[in-house]
Design a protein around this nucleic acid. Structure first.
Lengths: 175, 175
DNA sequence: AAGTGAGTCAGCCGATAAGCCGGGTTCTGT
DNA sequence: ACAGAACCCGGCTTATCGGCTGACTCACTT
């Protein structure tokens, strides 16, 4: 258990200067923090300076629509997502549902002096977070899972792996 | 009940300066006020300064056409919606029906000194509001639900989630 | 004139958020 | 291998804030 907890965050964050105008953040790697009894958890300390720099330590958390996990965006990246969401035709029921879920549940987070953020209880419930968490960097966002849930999901993925390459989207992908 | 009530409003409002001309408000997050026995409820206190600034605390409420909930717009945003509505071809029966519903039921709201608004009883009936409410920020408007109704609706959403990606509008959406 | 409905004001209660600190563990560098 | 430092976690503390309620007043209506 020791090997699994602690500092598995093998990937330092990376702020990439795209061109002389744009900055963008590229998150990756995994980290396993714990949720304290007030619903807070600490972000990896190596990320903190970068986040302070990139988004003034301001994040936005919302639910994921089809998995019991939370999505955590640096604020600038969230703004982009939100703009996309709001530009969709709002008379479409599916669109409205998506907007309700994502925007309605969105919450601002600010790192405190100890590098922690406080998760609203409704979001903790959605992701069924208990004590051990799994935080994954996925490009412009984090995904936050309950550790046990993520473990199960990961196992399930492995079982389905054989059928994965049947999807057409992946046919042309070369890694 | 304790964990669900109280200050779930984690989102401060946001007035975004679009360019040097336009201002726009971007509402998000969830809040759970109560309806008092006079049919009033309080808006989240963090929003009040911004609303005072943005629309002189003037809102417009109307019904939603396909859900038992109410739509609450800051006045400037309502003006836009109204203009769009009136520019539609009014010979079309569907258009006329939409105009009747939305414009006919619209009512002006003004925050009182305690940051509350009084809902017309006809609108309270439409949304079947009892005591516990759910107020969601959705970009340029709020949606106001009876808390129990919203809970049911949300649960239903979660069950239907598997069909979500079948919609073409959402195919190209990358979050 | 009385009653109803709306606006104002004030106080209470509860919840939450932020700060602080101490202990234990891990990691790093020498 | 050892020492130092950093960091993570958890508990406690306080204080601030916001929401709710109830009472009072005013205006309008019937």
């Amino acid at each position: 258990m020791v090997g699994e907890s602690g500092e598995l965050w093998t990937q330092p964050q990376k702020i990439v200067k795209m061109d002389n105008q744009t900055q963008s953040i590229m998150l990756r790697g995994i980290h396993t923090p714990t949720l304290d009894n007030k619903g807070r958890f600490a972000l990896p300390s190596r990320l903190r300076p970068e986040l302070a720099d990139y988004c003034d330590s301001e994040l936005v958390v919302t639910v994921d629509v089809d998995e019991p996990c939370l999505l955590i965006y640096p604020k600038p990246d969230w703004e982009i997502v939100q703009a996309k969401l709001m530009s969709l035709p709002s008379l479409n029921p599916q669109v409205r549902r998506l907007q309700r879920l994502l925007m309605g549940q969105a919450a601002d987070l600010k790192l405190d002096s100890a590098g922690r953020v406080l998760l609203p209880s409704a979001l903790r419930d959605h992701a069924r977070l208990s004590h051990q968490l799994t935080l994954m960097g996925l490009g412009n966002k984090f995904e936050l899972w309950d550790a046990a849930t993520w473990q199960q999901t990961q196992d399930a993925y492995r079982d389905e792996m054989g059928q994965l390459d049947s999807s057409e989207v992946l046919q042309d992908l070369s890694l």
